[in-house]
């Protein structure tokens, strides 16, 4: 990671994100570190590995219980996580493990049952334009054109910067589609347009919930590269949720691996691959090692998640 972002000269001056500094993570319930060995030396006296710099997002002992008709489903339990400024964190977990719940708590859509989510030290109280969200199913407004969608955020505060929006549309190859409606575009273009809408609003934090899961493999790879390009150019913190092991490693500074429900953090992998990255990284030896390790970690959890699902289906 020491060589990362050499191409972007000024962005890391204030946040030296070398390995270990942001291992701000601990499995609270078991009370001991479940993280990777040898990466915990900076851990504080309170038993919690924290970011030594300013954590932009701080999640403390988060628990979220859904209780529809007394069913009492614990989606997330005792989850601690710090996310540093300008860090790219991916959350990798089997389906139904509470990844989305975690994201929705940060976005401000859900209130934690217990624990807290702090952004810049303040508890999250509802959605805010500084925390932008990209949804799993494309959520461009179907009744607005691509141009209107892109302008939406700034328009809400009467601060539309046409040059910036035009630049974003150019960068994502959407010029000429400003007057098209979302349904007239391909899936990949729709996802790019949603990204433009988000970036036009200039959020500090981008929360992305499996945004590329509906795309074909080729488009997905291009989208990942594009996302990294955009991220390298501008200061932004990303929390990216996925169940795709390769995607999680390719994008991330850190991969947070989650357990099956109730969602806890199983382990955190620091991805020490230089940036900027492109698809050639995918065939490197280092990448394969990370992938193997992540796959091992997630395999048992995926099995457990599947069993849970079968059980639920039988009960229903």
């Amino acid at each position: 990671m020491s060589e990362r972002k050499q191409t972007t000269d000024d962005r890391n001056e204030n946040s030296q994100r070398t390995t270990g500094e942001y291992d701000g993570l601990r499995n609270g319930r078991s009370g001991h570190e479940t993280g990777t060995e040898g990466r915990r030396e900076r851990e504080g006296g309170d038993g919690r590995a924290r970011a030594t710099g300013d954590a932009l997002v701080e999640i403390n002992e988060l628990r979220k219980i859904y209780d529809p008709d007394g069913a009492h489903v614990t989606a997330v339990e005792d989850l601690d996580l710090d996310i540093g400024d300008n860090e790219f964190v991916t959350v990798l977990g089997p389906s139904g493990c509470g990844k989305s719940t975690l994201m929705e708590c940060i976005a401000g859509y859900l209130e934690p049952t217990e624990g807290e989510v702090l952004v810049n030290g303040d508890p999250v109280a509802g959605p805010d334009p500084s925390r932008g969200v990209v949804f799993q199913s494309n959520r461009l407004f179907p009744w607005k054109t691509i141009g209107q969608n892109a302008r939406f955020g700034p328009q809400m505060r009467n601060a539309v910067d046409d040059d910036r929006i035009q630049q974003l549309l150019d960068d994502t190859g959407l010029t000429g589609f400003e007057d098209s409606y979302p349904h007239e575009l391909s899936g990949g273009m729709q996802q790019r347009a949603e990204l433009v809408r988000l970036l036009a609003n200039d959020p500090d934090i981008m929360l992305m919930d499996e945004p590329f899961s509906g795309l074909d493999a080729m488009t997905k790879e291009l989208m990942q590269e594009m996302l990294l390009d955009i991220w390298e150019e501008e200061d932004r913190t990303v929390l990216f949720i996925t169940h795709d092991v390769a995607e999680a490693i390719f994008l991330a500074d850190r991969v947070v691996v989650m357990t099956a429900r109730p969602g806890q953090i199983k382990d955190v992998i620091d991805v020490d691959i230089g940036r900027p990255r492109d698809s050639s990284v995918l065939t490197s030896e280092a990448f394969n090692e990370y992938q193997e390790r992540a796959s091992d970690l997630i395999h048992d959890e995926a099995e457990r998640a599947m069993e849970q699902k079968q059980q639920e289906t039988q009960e229903a």
Partner: peptide, 18 residues
């Protein structure tokens, strides 16, 4: 209307009336 559209609007900075 899927709730996520309202969520998206709020996260983009829209007030309730917007």
């Amino acid at each position: 209307i899927d709730d996520e559209y309202s969520r998206a609007a709020h996260s983009l900075g829209a007030a309730d009336w917007q």
